[in-house]
Design a protein around this nucleic acid. Sequence first.
DNA 1: ATAAAATAGTTTCAATACTTAACTATTAAT
DNA 2: ATTAATAGTTAAGTATTGAAACTATTTTAT
Lengths: 146, 146
Amino acid sequence: MTPSDRLREQALDGFWETVPSLWNFVRSYIRVTATSNFDVTVEQFHVLRFVRKGMSISELATAKNISRPAISQAVDALVKKGLLTRTQSLNDRRYVELTLTSEGNALLDSVFKETRQWMKERMKKLSATELETIARAMDAMKKMLD
Amino acid sequence: MTPSDRLREQALDGFWETVPSLWNFVRSYIRVTATSNFDVTVEQFHVLRFVRKGMSISELATAKNISRPAISQAVDALVKKGLLTRTQSLNDRRYVELTLTSEGNALLDSVFKETRQWMKERMKKLSATELETIARAMDAMKKMLD
DNA sequence: ATAAAATAGTTTCAATACTTAACTATTAAT
DNA sequence: ATTAATAGTTAAGTATTGAAACTATTTTAT
C-alpha cells in the first residue's frame, strides 16, 4: 500500500461515512417540503428538477434508471397538475420538449430556497476554515465525475 | 451579507453542484453491480445495507420514508431469496430481529468491495492535497448532521 | 393488580407505479 | 427508395406501496 493509496482510502472512508447519510438527510427535508407545501411526490419533484435542466424523456429515463414509458406516464401526471407542458420540437419532430410552467418553476424555486436556507442555518456550526475546505473539496470531487 | 455568510453560500453552491450528481453516479454503479451480479434490485440492496447496520422494520420504514407494511413485504422477498432471516427478539418479543445470512453478507461485501475499487481508481485523478482536503471536508460536513 | 394505551409487526386490498411488447411518427443510413 | 434507428406513446400485466384493520406484546395509568 503506497502513501497515496492510503490517502485515497482515507478520503473514501470519509465519503462513505458522510455523503450517503447527509444526502439522505437533505433529501428527506426536500421530501417533507415538497409533499407538505405542494401536492407532488419526491420522484415527481426530481423529474421537475431534471426537466429544468433541459432533459428529454429519454435522457430522464436513463438518468433515473427507469423505462421510457414510466417517465412518459410520470410526465402525464405533471402535465395534468399544470407543472409542465409538452411541445413537439421544431428541430427534430420526434422530440418532445418539456417545459416548466410558471407554477412548476415557482414550486422548484420555493423548495430549493427553503432547503438552502435550512442548510445555511445548519452550516453555522462550521468555522470559516471548514467552509473553505468544503468548497475546495467539492471542486476536487467533481473531477471524479469525468 | 456578512463574510461568513458568503463562505456558507460558496460551500453550499459546491455541495449542490457536486454531491447530487456524484452520489447518483455512485448509486448507478452500485445498481449495475448489484443487479447484474446478483438477483436484487437497488432498493433491496439498500434494505440489506440498513439491516447490517442493525435496523428494525420500523426504523427502516422511517429511514427510507416508506410504510411499515411496504418494508415488511420487502423483507419477505429477501427472506425468500435466502439473504436475511427474521427471529423474534428475546428482550422485547414485539420486535423482529433481522439478520443477514452468509449469502446476504457476501453479497453486500462483494458489491461494496467492487464499488470501492472502482471509486479508488477514479480517485487517481486527484492530487495528494486534494485527497487530504476531501478527507477533512468530510469530517466537517458530518457536523451538519447533528 | 388490572384495564387502557402504546408499540412492533403483519395481512388484506385497493391504488399507484413500473416493465415489456407492440405501435406511430420522424429522421438517418445504405 | 428502402431499411434501420430514434423518440415517444399506448396497452396490458406485474410488482410496490399505503391505509385500515388485525395480533401480540409491553408500558402506562388508575
